[in-house]
Design a protein around this nucleic acid. Sequence first.
RNA 1: CGGGAUGUAGCGCAGCCAGGUAGCGCGCUUCGUUCGGGACGAAGAAGCCGGGAGUUCGAAUCUCCCCAUCCCGACCA
Length: 573
Amino acid sequence: MKISRYILPTLKEDPSDATVASHRLMVRAGLIRKESAGMYIYLPMGLKVLQKVTAIVREEMNRSGALEFLMPEMTSAELWKESGRWNTMGPEMFRIKDRNTMEYALAPTHEEAFTSAVRSLISSYRDLPLNVYQINTKFRDEIRPRFGVMRSKEFIMKDAYSFDMDEKGLDDSYQTMRKTYRTIFKRCNLETIPVEADTGAMGGSQSEEFMVASEIGEEVLLICEACGYKANQEKAEYQHGVPGNTEPEAPLAAVDTPDVRTIDDLTVFFKCGPERFMKSIVYTADGTQIMAVVPGNREINEHKLKNHLRAAELELSSDSAVEEVTGAPVGFAGPVTDRKIRMVFDTSVKGIINGITGANKKDTHYTGVNPGRDFTITEEADITIAEEGDLCPQCGKAMITRKGIEVGHIFKLGYKYSKSMSLTVLDRNGKAVHPIMGCYGIGVNRTMAAVVEQHHDDKGIVWPMTITPFQVCIVGIAKTDEEAAAVEEIYTMMKDAGIEVLLDDRKVSPGFKFADAELIGIPIRITVGKNYFNNNELEIKMRRTGESENVTKGNLLARIMEIIKQETDIIEK
RNA sequence: CGGGAUGUAGCGCAGCCAGGUAGCGCGCUUCGUUCGGGACGAAGAAGCCGGGAGUUCGAAUCUCCCCAUCCCGACCA
């Protein structure tokens, strides 16, 4: 491809609306353009990369035995009503009507569509195990699209759904996908960290997310460097320490605390650390009020709490509801009460001696509160967020935190959809049974952006050989028509050899071309200039290492082929 | 949805406080000279100053109301 005949609008300046490196560089290198918030145009060069990532995903999915489909993106409301998600999906699902007022959803995901399709296609245990997938656009009305294509309203996802006869089969399918994902990301030269993830209240038994460590990541990961435990903060467990505090029990005492409500206020008022407090928060879980009690120095993990309660919906109770159930305004709730309310205590609460907590009375707190004596721990669970320095649940060493971008997710779904949508097959005894399902997603555009995030420098993108839009960029520095013809000869030779080559034949200065080649991030640059016209020397320069070498025209092809192979092997081997 | 910021030529910005012919850099067009690290000169084209209302003789500038974009918090690949 000749740049003079291409659309490649590179920019010298950063676009004003881009803050993260991948977004900035993808726009500056002429890969994408914003159409509107959360929607992007892929220009020819950007599309090439996207297609290469897609090709790797497809190749590995096919290798794993999965079968590729292409599902409608407009899915009928009927499907969603069957699973019950028409009502529960919420405003992130785009809904539309046709001229006959038939309702549809622009699919944010395809569990229903695939379950329904598979239902009509298979009927016997002999058809299982089955794994079906597609690479297709998803629509989500994101509250806040962000970071270019990293989080957009419309994105390309590879989504796969597995169907097995039993949990053993599901586990095999799951492990196969896990391996496939590792290979896919490796081939994209993307270093990922698989972490344990929250499975939600759906009874999903196992779930892992593939994270790319990055400062701009929207997820927090807890990592134990000693034993290798890795989990999303939503899910991460930790060993709840027992405080070394052995002071004698003090009597329970009510203290006037006018307008002292928050933990910060209380530490100032009582002149003590936040860990002495029993923070009591009232939630509404599926319509009923519950109180969660955690140490004052910890945050409640709503995912853990929701899972513990097996609740579908969990939200902070309104001020009026709090007042109703505790008898006090917000800020004075506590577990010492005669009122009947379900309480869930974090595992660390029982270790607090002479604690301080709300007295369920306006402007009053109790001091000298002791679990067991002043209230009973009726229900205990780990309901707090793990933080940096917390002890690993497996080996007890201190964990660290990292931020991560989620590029893939694998999930044991269980029977949710096969049951709600009545998918059955006959087992070997002729009895109808529900297959057990798994689902597996990869954000394709996000993967592309994550690669840029992970492979760039101050000059621009550094594409891995496996997904680069072009393998070679020829910078021609020709002054005469004869020289231009000589440059073109090199270009044609490489093109005919099957090398993906971009020829910079624009009438701009050499420095301009060099800078653009680096910005775009083509792995191999060949300079065809006076050294060639005078001495038959072509310069090969590597984007990744900055190393350069000179070859003659006769040796060029063989050398380039060799480099391409090397650069590919570095990634894939 | 809450908090913050910004909307002026294709892109990046100044002008606004203190109202009076809309500017700079990049890019674009033409010509010439350059050209192995973002060249130079000359001549051009290009703007509903986000939208609407108001104040004023006069509004990019002041007031009010919308809209859009971006950043920080609750959803997710």
